[in-house]
Design a protein around this nucleic acid. Structure first.
Lengths: 358, 358
DNA sequence: ATGAAAGCGCTAACAC
DNA sequence: GTGTTAGCGCTTTCAT
């Protein structure tokens, strides 16, 4: 009747044995397994993931919630995630949060609620409390990249520290007029990535007794480009350095500067954050975090939770650290994994390094 | 026992009725439906997509095969696709082709073979014949964006024509020394996107009796940046115009030019292809195609095939055009939908338009 | 080490 | 219009 039955008949065994031979769980003699595997190859048998999921409850799929599909940071995290997932034979299904509140609600309350995955990863999402609750209610391992999100196992760089690092670097270089070009609303939104980067900048400026100045824009190349004109076109008030909230903004600023005949870094120092591969190629000084590795690491953490048979950590039920794997339902305290950051200084002139191709 | 049974009991109906009330198929009195829907809301019932898929054979999911997650064109197509899919309550699972041949094979022969989707979309993929065959064997509707791929329903711009259009524009402007910076291997790879763009350039140059010159690089901003130095740094042999194979290359070229003190477009005209939103913001002249709309359109076509209960068109079995929907297994000839292109000329100086923010 | 049988949670005939 | 029944294609006790 069904494919497995055909396969079993061809191999001369029962469906149960055929299933065991292919899935690898349960005892099957080596000889029998070979028989089944050969037969499967012969007729091109492939298990129905649906039927298998129905009985095992495992989907071999992870859901990824992300606010943008474009954007350097996001696409690199996604690439790292996808590669790591494929290595483990997992599918990746993407839920792209729209800016529309209604669409966003639908993702959390309809799409995610269907639970077509064994685990969930949220990237660069700032979920509301209600959203965190609904994520938790899924009862699936959950990891957040680009957080931290309270109560959720997160992996992220310390945005404030990174911004401080970048700003201090410029100060150490002797700059005193340093403007920050960052994400709109950074001042009033201390929990967001751009809010924290603004805060780190402010802290460093304050610590040195320097006045700070913020220019808001979109977190993108054109954003940096547009904003730069307002900041650097007037020579009489031009800063000597700019701290951009991300590499994309930084590059936009550099393009604008060059267009205005301002030499970088001779007349204007620019520093970004993210460590995107493009930053390296354009000789942009930046604070590095590796998006691709963060995706890989996130998958690693998800898989660990999956292997341990754990669901998402449930606040208030956390077990003491000392408890090993033997207790029932040992749920780890939501952990925060910090991505190490390092400042990478580059010449910011000429192509990457050495002679350009051809 | 199972959730549906609980729901049915609570609503005081049978499982079958509850199922009908929620899925909308089959007759249910209005009153009963309300009863069931209320009960469902009360206990937070959500159907198990797995169980439903097992019996209906529908997954409400489409698989997307794509070579890059980064890249302007790709992420925009993906965004359009995802949005259109969500509108229809479909999930989107991504299969990111790696450059490694082994990984690529695994996608086609393992991941896709699992058929965890109702339809497949390939974006910017140049499948081998073997791969096309395996896609077809899936027996699912199939659409290709960025083709055309022989025998597959494709939607794409005419790359050769677009390149000709761009080149002719430069020629009409009076340029005679026009260099093409495009994807490596374009000369020997006439079927690929960059191969066709090179070809269109060559045709236009030939038609005007102008010599053509090609500089290969990566299809990315840093690619354009690096290659530009080899092409424009020597003033004695500098071309007066550059036709870049994509907007990303074009922007890289512009950055390099500005760094070398070459004014764009005064000293050097640059034109790209793709019509990315960034191109507009940077004032880049380009040949427009709308990646986001292509994603949306592709979903539209997939859904049409799904609604018609058709599988992927099977070459050699195509039915005559005149046959309406009544015959068995009417399979349409693989069709090619051409995306209209239009050249958008921009000043290429200053920010987008008007004053920059703040 | 293998087979028989009982479901996983739902939908689709079919009878009423 | 609604309930009953029979599976969808697998995995997994439980015997053997």
């Amino acid at each position: 009747m069904n494919a497995l039955a055909d396969l079993a008949r061809l191999a001369g065994v029962s469906k149960a044995t055929a299933s065991r031979a292919l899935s690898g769980r349960g005892y099957v003699s080596e000889r029998t397994r070979d028989l089944v595997v050969d037969a499967a190859a012969q007729i091109g048998y492939i298990v129905s993931p649906n039927a298998a999921s129905l009985v095992t409850g495992q989907t071999k799929n992870v859901g990824v919630v992300i606010p943008f599909l474009s954007g350097w940071f996001f696409s690199e995290v996604l690439e790292g995630t996808e590669a790591a997932l494929l290595d483990r034979e997992y599918d990746m299904t993407i839920y792209n949060l729209t800016t529309a509140a209604e669409g966003r609600r639908r993702i959390f309350e309809f799409f995610l609620a269907r639970k077509r995955f064994d685990a969930v990863m949220i990237i660069g999402v700032e979920p509301s409390e209600r959203e965190v609750a609904s994520l938790r209610r899924l009862g699936r391992p959950l990891v957040c990249v680009g957080g931290p999100v309270p109560g959720v196992h997160s992996i992220a760089m310390d945005d404030t520290a990174a911004a401080r690092l970048a700003t201090e670097h410029l100060i150490a270089l002797g700059h005193t007029r340093i403007v920050h070009i960052g994400g709109s609303g950074a001042e009033g939104h201390p929990g967001s990535v751009h809010g924290k980067r603004f805060e780190g900048y402010r802290q460093a400026m304050n610590a040195s007794g320097l006045p700070y100045q913020f220019a808001p824009t979109r977190m993108s190349m054109p954003g940096g480009f547009d904003a730069a004109f307002g900041v650097i076109s007037d020579p009489s008030v031009r800063p000597s350095a700019i701290f951009a909230a991300c590499d994309e903004i930084a590059l936009g600023v550099i393009v604008a500067a060059r267009q205005l005949g301002i030499r970088v870094p001779a007349d204007l120092s620019v520093i970004g954050i993210d460590g995107h591969e493009y930053a390296e190629m354009f000789g942009l000084t930046t604070v590095e975090q590796s998006p691709r590795d963060q995706g890989r690491l996130a998958v690693e953490l998800l898989m660990r939770q999956l292997d341990a048979g754990q669901a998402a950590p449930d606040v208030g039920q956390a077990a003491p650290d000392s408890v090993s794997g033997l207790t029932h339902h040992v749920v780890p305290e939501p952990e925060l994994t910090r991505i190490p950051v390092s400042l990478v200084e580059r010449s910011s002139t000429g192509p990457s390094a050495g002679a350009p191709p051809r």
